[in-house]
Design a binder for these strands. Sequence first.
DNA 1: CACTTGACCTGTCCGC
DNA 2: TGCGGACAGGTCAAGT
Length: 291
Amino acid sequence: MPELPEVETVKRGLERLIVGKTIASAQFDTPKSFPNAEADVASFLAGSSVVAVHRRAKVLLIGLSTNYSLVIHLKMTGQLVFVGDKERFGAGHPNASLIGQLPDKSTRVTLTFSDGSRLYFNDQRKFGWMRLLPTPEIVNLDFFKKVGPEPLSADFSWQNLQARLQRRKNTNIKAALLDQTVVAGIGNIYADESLWGAKLHPTTLVKNVPAAKYKPLYTAMQAVLTQSIAEGGSSDRNYVDAEGSRGRYLNFAAVFRREGRPCPRCNTLIVKTRVAGRGTHTCPKCQKLVN
DNA sequence: CACTTGACCTGTCCGC
DNA sequence: TGCGGACAGGTCAAGT
């Protein structure tokens, strides 16, 4: 599910909805969705308040007043949905319709705030996880030590993208884009969309990618990610934002989930194949293999 | 080491 | 309808 734009959308929603709230109680299933939830974690959480929400790559960080953080990976089907309390959020509230809908059978963790509002961590496939860690220890996690740069950060250049992709010279360009140590936050949707934008075939070996393609690839990646964030991300199946709303980006996607439909550039029908073990969408005319 | 493939889960969809 | 198999947005560990 969530790639960079979806996690960023959730992050912005949570920033608006839960910063300043105090956790009154926590419930979770263990150990799958909360691997370090010892018996006293719920009582430890109670009374701490949310001071900040951050995103790095596809990981969400909820900073608490105790100098601990909740570290959350939504993986394929995770959701973080905030639901206001009945008294204060009546019919007029954007997600008032969710009151009574949650928790459901996919709910793994529930945080109840002191004003009666709740944050639900739902995850149908149980690949996602939530951990409680001392905030200073987060940088020591293997994932954070190895993860590549943020593709939308001001100091990330097309030359930087080229150099990092070329570390994976014998693999195909799609697998290299999906490698989180090359660049952070790209998943299957935005890999396909970025490659279409740069007119690159996903099975092109990195060592065969023409040097002139890296700048278009960088430009396409930034454009795709930026537009998706503006549209609230992509909802293919499970993804919803922090208020339970679906993203709109797939209305604008060029190739993803558009097999059998015309390429927006040349009207050739989009085809679906399998690359790097993932469903892959390409325009057979625009994206020529150069191996 | 670099690279590829399966496993982790549940739900849904498609073909027989 | 029922059933089996493929597949679904991510990451690891284990294999070659």
